[in-house]
């Protein structure tokens, strides 16, 4: 199981942060060439991230957020990052399936031109406006390269003429993105929580998105890693229950029974699926040893 509980933003023009980013235990690092980089520093950031991908080792999954790929800047980002073969390309402000397909077409041209395996470069799409939210389903299904879609809430709430609050303002967008991702069989990543000093508010938000079913959250500070991982790691009780279901499955298989029962009750298929997912999550997050 590839975990995507935490995807940490790293500004693309900060060498100190880029070289230290590998020490943090987040699941993914997202080097940003877009909003966190001043217009005058776009070229600097592009070469810096490219060199970091080529010469530094990171234990995390790597993602690069590029500039709008329909612009000259975005195309230059793709030309620099795709040949490194190290990072998932994250599209900003995706509004339609066509946005993803056009970027995928350009990536394919680059792969062909550089003699790289065609189709190997993966993509993520950030949905940051009402148009994108309403098109979430077609965006999620737009390319086999797409491994996930993510909500970008700051632009979204601005476009919706509101501000970030307790979460009511994001309920529709989160639900749309989650359903679109699940229907397409890809990951759903929640938006950042910008008030780094409000740990209580952050934890409440992570509990909410975990309960909704998101795979993880974009984060902006290493301090946010631990609370997310704690909430996303199955509890001992959940693991024990899942192990009991697994034992019941094995017992039923051994005895050639079609029906699985536990403590005298029949175990339904969704219960089995949830138990297996809990065990996979527990193993991936090292709460349970591999078999």
């Amino acid at each position: 199981m590839n975990l995507l509980r935490t995807m940490m933003f790293v500004p693309g023009n900060n060498p100190g942060m880029i070289q230290d980013a590998g020490i943090y235990p987040c699941d993914a690092l997202m080097f940003d060439l877009e909003d966190s980089v001043a217009q005058a520093s776009k070229t600097d950031a592009r070469f810096l991230v490219q060199q970091a991908l080529m010469h530094l080792d990171y234990p995390q999954r790597l993602v690069v957020r590029i500039n709008d790929p329909s612009t000259d800047l975005g195309k230059k980002d793709l030309e620099a990052i795709v040949p490194c073969c190290k990072a998932i390309i994250r599209l900003p402000k995706t509004e339609t399936a066509d946005d993803v397909q056009q970027c995928a077409d350009y990536i394919e041209k680059l792969e062909q031109r550089r003699g790289l395996p065609v189709g190997k470069t993966q993509m993520m799409a950030a949905i940051e406006g009402p148009e994108g939210v309403l098109n979430a389903r077609s965006i999620a299904a737009s390319s086999p390269r797409l491994i996930g879609i993510a909500l970008g809430a700051e632009d979204y709430v601005t476009a919706m003429k509101t501000t970030r609050g307790a979460g009511e303002e994001l309920f529709f967008a989160r639900s749309m993105i989650l359903h679109a991702a699940r229907a397409a069989g890809i990951a759903a990543i929640d938006t950042v929580y910008s008030d780094v000093n409000n740990e209580e508010g952050f934890i409440q938000e992570v509990e909410l998105i975990h309960q909704l079913g998101f795979d993880g959250k974009s984060i902006i500070n290493p301090r946010q890693i631990k609370p997310v991982h704690r909430i996303y790691t199955p509890s001992e009780k959940e693991i024990e229950k899942a192990l009991a279901v697994k034992a019941a499955i094995e017992e039923a298989n051994r005895r050639g029974l079609g029906v699985i029962s536990l403590n005298g009750k029949m175990v339904d298929k969704p219960v089995v699926e949830r138990a297996l997912r809990t065990l996979a999550l527990a193993k991936a997050s090292k709460a349970l040893q591999e078999d």
């Binding site: 060498p15 600097d44 592009r46 070469f47 810096l48 490219q50 060199q51 970091a52 530094l56």
Partner: peptide, 9 residues
Amino acid sequence: CTIRARVQA
């Protein structure tokens, strides 16, 4: 790698 990146930029 940072020196190279800055010179290339």
